[in-house]
Amino acid sequence: MPKKNILLFVLLVIISFVLMTFQSRKGHLPINNLLHNLLNNTHKATKSLSDSVTRPFERMALNEEDNIKLQKRIDDLLMEREKYQEALIENKRLKELLRLRESSSSYITSAKVIARGVDYWTNTLIIDKGLKDGVEKDMSAITPKGLAGKVISVSDSYSQLLLISDINFSVTVRVQETRKEGVISGTGTRKCVLKYIPYEEEIKTGDIVITSGLDSLFPPGIQVGYVSKVDNKGAGGHFQYIEVVPFQDDKKIEEVIIVR
């Protein structure tokens, strides 16, 4: 193998390490959002395209509703109705979202999820609202079921959400019944961990956990999840080891509401 190639390889290793060391000391380098925006625009365009292809069929199916009413006596009515299930579910979801929007005083905007983040390691989502719609970094994302995550980066028309299940996500919470405060952190899986609850506190499986608002990031009173496992036999060091399952499964998020 030519020496030139080995030198080039060593150079790449050195440059990478210098870059990473520099950024670990001085913070991330400012990166041009051009490619990011282009990628998000393409995601949005393909989502609109797929929606526009499927929508006429959904509408056609909905127009047949009258005919279906006339054929109530036909035995396979239930099978026909299954076609509408998706639209009904969507309708119900949007109604819940609307109700949440009306009840939330710190409402900023509602947004659709257009893609998952490019990075495999982190649990992130891309939504179709950004600075132009009033979204800012560190705002909270909620759904009718509960807390979904927070905004970690914003461009003009898009934002990226860090989901509650990510290991770099934390939120101060309160156990609804006992009012005890703690911190919930993501674990990279469906379950989160409720930290800093001393052994004296009695926490039961099924207890509901809500945001406390003490971190000044998340509004208080948003439902987060329920306690699924409590280990008070010393596995968690000085505190109890408590697992919490978020109400909102991050694999099923389609729309969110951004609140301050």
Partner: peptide, 23 residues
């Protein structure tokens, strides 16, 4: 490097790893 830039993380890890793969 492009992958690093869109993953909103530090610049370098993917640059190094993909360089290693190419090489």
């Amino acid at each position: 490097a492009l992958e690093d830039s869109i993953s909103l993380s530090i610049l370098g890890p993917n640059m190094l790893s993909k360089g290693i793969i190419g090489f």
